[in-house]
Write a protein that binds this DNA or RNA. Structure first.
Lengths: 109, 109
DNA sequence: TCAATCGTTGGATGCTCGTCAAACAATTGG
DNA sequence: CCAATTGTTTGACGAGCATCCAACGATTGA
């Protein structure tokens, strides 16, 4: 069975206010900082400071990020592979992700 | 009586997640797009698409933006003069405001 | 001095959101 | 085939939030 992708907005439908709202949460902003360097698979986030959260809570945050157009999720068997929509976001809002990455680095060294 | 400034966080205390949360609202993001070109005085925002909002609602949004470190408010008599904290934000999160400005221009031309 | 102006504050209301728990669906290893 | 794994969905609950309204305080023009 080939892999599938969970539904996500088209690049031109990504709205700035929804992106900002999605990232204006401590948990989701930390997820962004994880995704900003290479893809990770979802929910198994041991050792990332999210151990205290229930798996359904993490799943909820992933959905918010995906529906805002921030991330892209590929379904492969039992696992979900999540990655940033780097190209799409850079095309739609040039410089935004770079500024966020620098901001995250400068805040929690 | 000399002008006063309403309380606001120090530059080094501005948190990225609070900025993103403050801007993750349609009304406040529109306020940002107003402030992004020159200062404006508060609450009297006729003809900016915010006529439908009660003055206390606008006052609330202004407070959120100020407490997040996005704007700075000077009290002069009965009026409040609000402006972006351009320098502080550029120093703290380089490129962020520029990216947001371009994003706002590209979205609602 | 007095009334009009500008904005804030407090309460009230309804909606959204973050979180957990339990049940569920899908997949896979034995 | 069965049990363990992986993540989603649904419901519930409390907190936060956006909004309006009324009342208030401060300021200023007449």
């Amino acid at each position: 069975m080939p892999d599938e992708w969970l539904p996500q907005p088209a690049t031109e439908d990504i709205q700035l206010v929804r992106v900002l709202h999605a990232l204006g949460d401590p948990v989701r902003l930390q997820l962004l900082s994880v995704y900003l360097r290479g893809q990770e698979f979802a929910c198994d986030l041991s050792g990332l400071g999210l151990d205290h959260l229930h798996k359904s809570t993490v799943s909820h945050h992933m959905k918010v990020l995906r529906e805002a157009g921030v991330t892209s999720t590929r379904v492969s068997g039992r696992n979900r592979f999540v990655q940033l929509r780097r190209g799409d976001l850079d095309r739609r809002f040039p410089g935004l992700l770079d500024a966020l990455l620098r901001g995250l680095e400068g805040e929690a060294p």
